[in-house]
Design a protein around this nucleic acid. Structure first.
Lengths: 141, 141
DNA sequence: TATAACTGATACTATAATAGTAGCAGTTAA
DNA sequence: TTAACTGCTACTATTATAGTATCAGTTATA
């Protein structure tokens, strides 16, 4: 069972890279090389981040991408939602009418509880907090 | 994003049905009808539950399935693991050597933390506890 | 002003996972 | 003997995942 797709994984790593050099524009090529992300795949992901206004881009030579939101307000949930949709552990909500029997509902109740928990936990992890961890770690080595 | 597949969903519902009539053998046909699960699909799922010793079967006419483990010791995690493998939010563990850079590792640390949390939460939800919820609910209506 | 280094957008492909369906062989109660 | 079962396995359709490839347009700069 996996909760993170490559889209999300790479997006987070790209955002960490961009958050680390806040005011410069980094090209997709540079990020791809640094983070070892397949170049064309990364470009798709960056387009997704642009559409959702987490980064801005500059076209042409010397162009690239720059972060466009406070990294402390950029949570992992936001990124998951962009690439994987809402966190919902079960899809029952979409077919309520088909869920005729109760056994399903007591299960859903529990699932919803855990779902909320996961959401809150992921909300508390932001690009900003990850970057802080990263810097701490670097100081130690 | 989904955490439960149909396999898991149906397996839990089938186990609730079986736990509800502990000492009788219920046929796949009966369970399928009660819980509105596609018959052949359910049979595959029941085979999975047999292999993992959650239920036993009796062949031939009048045969079927019976629960073979204390429902209170049968957690949702057990069932998820059977049909979806271990709960691991990211698959990085399988390619540690490829994860050259640290940004990935700080992310993994957080993911592992949340992973443990999810695991514990799902462990606390058992077929037994769900059945209790179900009976409570029935008394109220 | 040509060109190299970029982004924007979109179409394409390969593989795996998910959600089933179908059918044959063997077992057992009545 | 036969109907109702399970055991086992092969098959299919759809969707998600993880990329690749390419063309059009933009911009710094030599």
């Amino acid at each position: 069972m996996k909760l993170f797709t490559k889209h999300t994984d790479y997006a987070i790593r790209a955002l960490l890279e961009l958050a680390g050099s806040k005011d410069e524009f980094l090209s997709a090529r540079q990020i791809a090389k640094q983070q070892r992300i397949p170049y064309q795949f990364l470009r798709q992901i960056l387009q997704g981040l642009i559409k959702n206004k987490l980064v801005i881009s500059k076209e042409g030579s010397g162009g690239g991408f720059r972060i466009d939101k406070d990294p402390d307000l950029m949570s992992i949930v936001d990124i998951i939602v962009i690439f994987q949709g809402n966190i919902q552990l079960s899809d029952c909500m979409f077919r309520k009418k088909l869920c005729a029997n109760r056994s399903n509902c007591v299960l859903r109740k529990q699932i919803n509880r855990i779902e909320k928990l996961v959401n809150e936990e992921f909300k508390s992890v932001t690009i900003g907090s990850l970057l802080k961890d990263l810097k701490k770690q670097r100081r130690r080595f």
